[in-house]
Design a protein around this nucleic acid. Structure first.
Length: 529
RNA sequence: GGCCCCAUCGUCUAGUGGCCCAGGACAUCACUCUUUCAAGGUGAAGACACGGGUUCGAUUCCCGUUGGGGCCGCCA
């Protein structure tokens, strides 16, 4: 076995619903690091016994990771040499660790009640020192004492017996040297009265037993590291390397991004726009506002039609940079370029605009067939296209995707061109645009005369049509704008869109004539006014 | 309150003592192109939080201040 195979990293999410973007970023950095090293990426679920129905509860996380292309070598559904990968199933090892800690004097039974502890804590915090250190007043040193306390009806928790002198010096890969005074660390509880263990104990033990070599996690855990180091040392386990990542912060601030503060983020214009964009698209395929996933979770981006490689690329740039100019990376390029040493120390806020910019670049880098494959389901879901998709419709879709270019940012944006897939007599018009362009003085007469030329022009292709219009406006002595705007509204129902001649060619002569005719009739009728 | 972390344009960042009166990207603005909306092209505006040191010389090193964040649970 070579050194690379000893590189083992993990993410250990607790299954609490959808997958938060911060978790995604942590997972990504772990994955990028280990794929570059040739080591193993482990997915462990830090669930608790209270959570039932394992498979159901981890589904959002598994789906999120899979969608992003972040694969795991060991963990749920794939197994591995260090099973089980659900923390709740590892309690016998946790109990065994607590036993050893007790036996070696690194932990003790404590019979204080929660109220007594609270009182001490409160007093300590109000005092000048400001540091809470449990008095160990109800610490039971031997069996005799335990019996005595238990006779009083007290029940014990197990606490860590933290050192009272010296310091811990940690060489964090991203933060450099960090020092802690042991004196400031508390006698944390590692086992509850009911015998179940707490997260820090379980996590440290699981990491050690799973041979985790690098603990790469969010900065919030930096302050928790001393107690885990203590547990590891006391148990005689080798020390992993630590790398504490900066937070993914809220749009426009340095606060940690949180699932619960969505309402507040919606006050950020850019973020609100991003969310609105997704909601609008989902609404058109029958997904109500209540069913739209939280945009602080990965589900939103998947549902709204973002490209996973774009999200990955963007998130990689949040807290990491290769140099002063590289921004666009494929997954493979990221793996090759990534290093923990180049991870930033300061929090990076989530910028919806930049995400969108990266998204567009990735979208444009895709071949047309691929974009067709990704956009097609939206048309089907919206009921605009029937399965199996007819060859004629397929050709239209391909042409629309091609012509729309960077206007299709997320896959759902194909719905902006729904007009190409509706029947000629079902086209909906933008009311304001219709008024402005088709009810302008002389607009219908001009459009009708141009329509007449369309009947016989051959072939019905963009260059020929462009030439036709050029000659037409010259003869009529009007500007191009006088007819083209009315034409656009008549053909697409909208004031904006891609090239007019491509639009006409894609629709074909028959549709163009029918749509113009329909628009003319409507424009000249009075009832619509 | 204690401890820990952080601090370059609005945002993401490059920068490890002189190449920087600070470079790139997104966003913004102007001009240009143009049948609309984008895109493209050209250009503009925009930052080293502050105060002390160290040094011939600090964005870069040290100290302090300020500001921001995190942790201090019988949560994970």
């Amino acid at each position: 076995m070579n050194a690379a195979e000893n590189v083992r990293v993990r993410i250990a999410p607790s299954p609490t619903g959808a997958m938060h973007l911060g978790l995604v970023r942590t997972a990504l950095f772990n994955w990028l690091f280990v794929r570059g090293q040739g080591g193993k990426f482990i997915l462990r679920i830090d669930d608790t016994d209270a959570q039932r129905n394992q498979a159901e509860v981890v589904r959002p996380i598994l789906e999120g990771l899979r969608w992003l292309g972040i694969d795991w070598d060991e963990g749920p559904e794939v197994g591995g040499a260090y099973e089980p990968y659900f923390q709740s199933e590892r309690s016998r090892w946790h109990a065994e660790a607590v036993e050893r800690l007790l036996h070696t004097g690194h932990a003790y039974w404590d019979y204080a009640t929660p109220e007594e502890i609270d009182a001490e804590r409160k007093q300590a915090i109000e005092s000048k020192q400001g540091v809470f250190r449990y008095s160990r007043r109800w610490m039971a040193e031997g069996p005799g004492e335990r019996h005595r306390f238990e006779a009083q009806g007290r029940r014990a928790v197990v606490r860590l017996k933290m050192p009272s002198a010296g310091r811990l010096e940690l060489d964090d890969i991203v933060r450099g040297r960090v020092e802690f005074e042991w004196l400031r660390e508390q006698d944390h509880v590692i086992q509850r009265q009911d015998g179940t263990v707490l997260y820090h104990l379980a996590s440290a033990v699981d990491d050690a037993q799973m041979r985790i070599s690098h603990v790469i996690r969010a900065e919030e855990h930096l302050s928790n590291t001393p107690r885990q180091v203590f547990i590891l040392q006391a148990l005689g386990y080798p020390m992993p390397r630590f790398a504490h990542l900066p937070f993914v912060a809220e749009p426009g601030s340095r606060n940690k991004l949180s699932k619960r503060k969505l309402a507040q983020y919606l006050r950020n214009r850019d973020f609100a726009e991003l969310v609105e964009h997704g909601r609008r698209l989902l609404d058109r395929v029958g997904v109500g506002p209540e069913e739209v996933p939280n945009p602080v979770t990965v589900d939103f981006y998947r549902e709204a039609g973002f490209l996973p490689e774009a999200l990955v690329n963007y998130l990689a740039l949040l807290g990491w940079a290769l140099d002063d100019h590289s921004e666009l990376f494929s997954r493979e390029e990221l793996v090759a370029a990534f290093s923990l040493e180049r991870v930033n120390r300061s929090p990076a806020s989530f910028d919806p605009l930049k995400l969108m910019a990266i998204e567009v670049r990735h979208m444009l880098a895709l071949p047309v067939e691929e974009r067709v494959r990704l956009t097609r389901p939206w048309l089907v879901r919206a009921g605009l296209v029937l399965r199996p998709v007819a060859p004629q419709v397929e050709r239209t879709l391909s042409a629309v995707v091609e012509a729309a270019g960077d206007r299709i940012k997320v896959t759902g944006d194909i719905l902006d061109y729904a007009g190409f897939f509706t029947s000629d007599d079902a086209l909906e018009y933008d009311r304001a645009a219709f008024e402005k362009r088709l009810r302008a003085p002389g607009a219908t007469d001009l459009l009708r005369r141009f329509r007449d030329r369309l009947v016989s022009v051959e072939p019905f292709t963009a260059p020929v049509l462009e030439d036709l219009l050029a000659r037409f406006v010259a003869e009529e002595e009007v500007k191009v704008g006088a007819v083209i705007h009315a034409l656009r509204v008549a053909l697409t129902g909208k004031p904006v869109g891609f090239g007019m001649f491509e639009t006409m060619a894609i629709l074909g002569r028959e549709s163009c004539l029918a749509r113009i005719e329909r628009a003319l009739v409507r424009a000249e009728s009075t009832e619509e006014r």
